[in-house]
Computed example of a mutant assay.
Amino acid sequence: MSEIRNKISFDEFSKVELKVGKILSAENMPGYKKILRLIVDLGGEEREIMSGLAKHYQPEEMVNKNVIVCTNLEPRKFGDQVSDGMILAASNENGKPILLTVVEDTIPGSQIT
């Protein structure tokens, strides 16, 4: 059993905003070998999110995938682009990121509760 580090309170966790997003487009980001530039539908809005998935996924593999997105992180700059969210993933035994998703189709922007 692994040790739990950096425990947070329920109140701290409740500040994390997770939503279902649908990837509308994906492309390699010029000047970055590991980064994909994604446009993600979050219901009432579309967001540009940079994600370190390019070593493991081709852009065309990403389109139309439902993913889990942390939507209330502070934006982060990648060159001239700004990433406004984070796609969640787990790692397999080889270190490949496995995208977190939902089992059934759901509406983009659905809140994770």
Rank of each mutant, 00 (worst) to 15 (best):
E12S: 09
E12T: 13
F13Y: 14
E17H: 11
L18V: 06
L18K: 12
K19P: 04
A26H: 11
A26R: 13
A26S: 15
A26G: 11
E27V: 10
N28M: 13
M29I: 11
G31N: 08
K33P: 02
K34G: 04
L36V: 01
I39P: 00
I39N: 08
V40F: 08
D41K: 07
D41S: 06
E45F: 06
E45Q: 11
E45P: 01
E46M: 06
E46N: 15
R47W: 14
E48Q: 14
S51H: 10
G52Q: 02
L53T: 09
A54P: 04
K55L: 12
K55P: 00
K55V: 00
K55R: 07
H56I: 04
Y57F: 10
Q58A: 13
Q58W: 04
E61N: 09
M62R: 07
V63C: 14
V63H: 07
N64I: 00
N64M: 02
N64F: 00
K65W: 01
N66R: 09
I68M: 04
V69A: 05
V69E: 07
C70E: 08
C70F: 07
N72C: 12
L73C: 12
L73K: 10
E74T: 12
K77P: 03
G79H: 08
G79Y: 13
G79D: 04
Q81C: 05
M86Y: 02
M86T: 08
M86G: 05
L88K: 12
A89W: 08
A89C: 11
N92D: 15
E93Q: 09
N94Y: 12
N94C: 00
G95I: 12
K96C: 00
P97R: 03
P97D: 05
I98C: 02
I98V: 10
L99R: 00
L99S: 05
L100S: 05
L100H: 04
L100F: 12
T101Y: 07
V102K: 07
V103G: 11
V103H: 01
T106M: 14
T106H: 05
I107S: 14
P108M: 05
P108D: 09
P108C: 08
G109I: 03
S110R: 09
Q111L: 10
Q111F: 02
